[in-house]
Design a protein around this nucleic acid. Sequence first.
DNA 1: CGAAAACGATAATCCGATTCTCACCAACCG
DNA 2: CGGTTGGTGAGAATCGGATTATCGTTTTCG
Lengths: 230, 230
Amino acid sequence: MSPSPEQPKKRSAVSRREAAVARVLDPARERAETRVQAFLDAAMELMNSGSGQEFTVQEVIERSGQSLRSFYQYFDGKYELLLALFEDSVRTVAAQLTEEIANEATALDRLHRFIVEYFHQCQPAIKGRTTKRGFAPAFASFSHQLLTEHPVEASRAFVPLATMLEGLLAAAADESAIRSGLDHDRLAGTILQAIMFNAFAATISGVSAHPSEVDPGEELWDLLINGMGK
Amino acid sequence: MSPSPEQPKKRSAVSRREAAVARVLDPARERAETRVQAFLDAAMELMNSGSGQEFTVQEVIERSGQSLRSFYQYFDGKYELLLALFEDSVRTVAAQLTEEIANEATALDRLHRFIVEYFHQCQPAIKGRTTKRGFAPAFASFSHQLLTEHPVEASRAFVPLATMLEGLLAAAADESAIRSGLDHDRLAGTILQAIMFNAFAATISGVSAHPSEVDPGEELWDLLINGMGK
DNA sequence: CGAAAACGATAATCCGATTCTCACCAACCG
DNA sequence: CGGTTGGTGAGAATCGGATTATCGTTTTCG
């Protein structure tokens, strides 16, 4: 059994040959995908509803109507499940951000928008805003854990976002909107981390100290773009 | 079992009243402190030697020569132990940084030094440098977890460092070395987080991509002080 | 001195993840 | 068609670790 990694449901214009092969392989694959998706959905719900990655495998199988047996058939363990979930989220967020950025005129505007919006995506749900979060704050500790304990998988998972930001930085540099001589590669990573962890975690200083008159996302942008120097 | 009293806590100039009270209470307290310290020491060793906060309570009691019973007598659980350890580390690091900063001439220099040195403290031990780390990278995930799940305890633990940095920022602002109008309180928190997580975790972009010609600590300082804008 | 508190040693519980067993069923093969 | 094989459900069994409980013993303190 070698279920290919990712297979979009929508297969439209394919050759008859492929179609024929598919007729044989698809049923099985489809069942598998459905099943995997069921696990992912259930887990995602649990992740969003409350207690972060604290849910148990039991809960996942109950909520997904699948069996424990199947779970371990498809995932090497809970960790793999979380990882899959995480990769999904990153992709989703990247896609969302791409949209939200589209209308901005200048490269600098797009960069700005990216940073502020990503910050918000990472921010725990507050206010009535039922934003279509794709990046539950629940991923906070997991992403950090990933970064420290499995750097390889972690950076792989972040690729979509990282390359996107890199592109924005390069574009901004092209328009001379930011200073040159920066290592966009490293910078992108640094910025993503700064945003994430700043948004995810309560700030170290007084927890709910100030109601903060300014949008913390904008505040961070200001720091990133202007620095604290004179 | 001789109650080895070879650990006189440094209480120097206290009133006779206090001394008298102490004479009564101290023996018990001293034993308790010794014991607690034994746990903390053992745990700290385990923390530094390898697998982060993954050590088991069993290992702690074995290595400390204490009993499980005592452990739960003094700590509400493993979590409390970690917290205590963490608070200790923060205090230690703050003290170290205070020293390292002492010789710098200007406020800006002290700020610079603080940031770069703190970054190094947080950096996993590499190179032969047997730096007297007081802030094992093992605390990485724990501090993040703390920040997200127990913001109150977390910010309390960070107070020593946060106030120190706040002071440096204020001083620098006084000397007009950094721009005014910044909320030093919030800024301090943001900076600490940025430093820690950037140093702790591998950067998102290519893990060991570049051998990085520049000291990443200095790199971060540059970003913080100058921003990425023109 | 005697009750209370602190211990040490060790067994018992609890919780979750992961594995293992057994039985069923559907497609496939000769 | 009978047999084989692989995916599956339903649980039970195992395992690692934290937390609790038990039971004598020792220490502290009034």
